[in-house]
Nucleic acid binder design. Structure first.
Length: 112
DNA sequence: GTAATGACCTTGG
DNA sequence: ACCAAGGCCATTA
């Protein structure tokens, strides 16, 4: 019986492993953890990323559409795209440009 | 303990 | 092709 914190930690680990200038989606992380249907829980884990230590670059995680759905959950709604732009990612209308190009699949890149 | 919610994804019409 | 609804998992009230 896995602990709930374990799942969170797994998500945090994966998110922290995301290279700079790259992004991934909740479903990809969930799939990497072995629960493709737990995509919602991944997002929920991000919600808890605030209290996690060290903090997790949740701004590198977006939905399947590459849209910054959780930008409102940050300290400030525009903080997410600010961080993304600093990483070199272009954001337009709360949406990531060339998302497919910068997409980072853990199950593939980490060769699991 | 039960019920409702959510930073989602998949499938049906 | 586009629009709509359901479902799964974990957490919180």
């Amino acid at each position: 019986m896995p602990k709930e914190k374990d799942f969170f930690d797994q998500v945090f680990q994966v998110v922290r492993l995301i290279p700079k200038g790259r992004m991934t989606s909740y479903g990809a992380i969930a799939n990497y953890l072995g629960s493709p249907k737990s995509s919602r829980v991944v997002g929920y884990a991000m919600n808890a990323s605030h209290t996690a230590t060290p903090k997790v670059p949740a701004h590198r995680v977006v939905n399947r559409n590459g849209m910054l759905t959780g930008k409102m959950h940050f300290a400030t709604p525009h903080l997410m795209e600010e961080l993304l732009q600093k990483e070199g990612i272009e954001v337009k209308n709360d949406k990531v440009i060339n998302f497919e190009a910068i997409f980072w699949d853990p199950s593939k890149e980490l060769n699991i």
